[in-house]
Design a protein around this nucleic acid. Sequence first.
DNA 1: TAAACTGTACCGTTCGTTCGGTATAATGTC
DNA 2: GACATTATACCGAACGAACGGTACAGTTTA
Lengths: 184, 184
Amino acid sequence: MPKDTYIPCLLQLFRQYGYDGATLARISEATGLGKASLYHHFPGGKDEMVQAVMDYLERWLAENVLPSLQGNGTALEKLQRMCDRLSELYEAGRQPCMSATLLLGSARDLFHARVQARYCAWINSVAQVLVDAGLNSTTAQQRGEDMVITIQGSLIVAQGLDNPDIFQRSLQQLPQQLCRNLAT
Amino acid sequence: MPKDTYIPCLLQLFRQYGYDGATLARISEATGLGKASLYHHFPGGKDEMVQAVMDYLERWLAENVLPSLQGNGTALEKLQRMCDRLSELYEAGRQPCMSATLLLGSARDLFHARVQARYCAWINSVAQVLVDAGLNSTTAQQRGEDMVITIQGSLIVAQGLDNPDIFQRSLQQLPQQLCRNLAT
DNA sequence: TAAACTGTACCGTTCGTTCGGTATAATGTC
DNA sequence: GACATTATACCGAACGAACGGTACAGTTTA
């Protein structure tokens, strides 16, 4: 059984419980694997599990999100495609973002650098789309930041109010918001 | 020494480390009180500490944020005053929001109801200001949600990128964003 | 048979919590 | 004024449970 099998399950746990809250007991129960088996697949323990999940997410983003930004069509269409993919990733607002949870507690020191790099890359990708559409780079950068802000914020509010629709609505309005005052 | 003395310190810990990450050892070190002394002030343990901090925050909001929405002036001025207060609360983007951290891990079951109530109250207060300014209630409600989304999101991104300026910029643009297409 | 995998028992540490007790200052009693 | 009592604040030491992690023998699989 390849170890990728357990990654989605681990993702689910870490983004729901956070690093400190995702105990080995819970992981063992959720995966159906004993502790020995977990340490066979992930000799580095919880750290390595999180790293593996981040590897998985980076691959997923590279294969799903970035291509949707680089395909054909207007900037608006590209961003709409991206949002569709993100809705899958976050299960329509029912699941929190793991990167955000990793900014808390003991996890921060361990993973902050990597989270920071991912946010930067994501923001830059979106900014590039807007620059290509004719926006100046400063504004494009700001709107890239605004995208991540809206995603993260609406996930939190959706969790807080126990209402995924809030995420869906935000996501639906987001592309037009990012493309406002744009010629094409 | 009244127990309110330790509340700001506890707030700092819980919003930085989360419920699971804010261990009694850390709390003891930060407050300078022995573990046993902590149980003298908070017989209910960590739960009671969090509740006390939430009490404190609700009082703070009632005394600082809500009045700024109910004073004189246009909707824009009211919202700007509110944002100034929020910037204090989150220390200009350097501190995360405790409500958001309490949505994770073992804390969720314990505090979700109260967090939900606070978000609702906050959204409704802002929506009311916009309704008074002539906006229809559906749109006003959405913009209230958008406010919390922007606050929470920009706090996360500011943490993730280690750059509080992002929070400051979002907060500065927020009032005009909420008041767009408004007569007064 | 060799390698991959797993169940069980265990390690030292840290968790939240509790107990017994001390120091100090205020309050009541004579 | 002298003394006993009480309330408040605090702490060292220890509790059982759970933590992350390991050692190893046994089982499955190719």
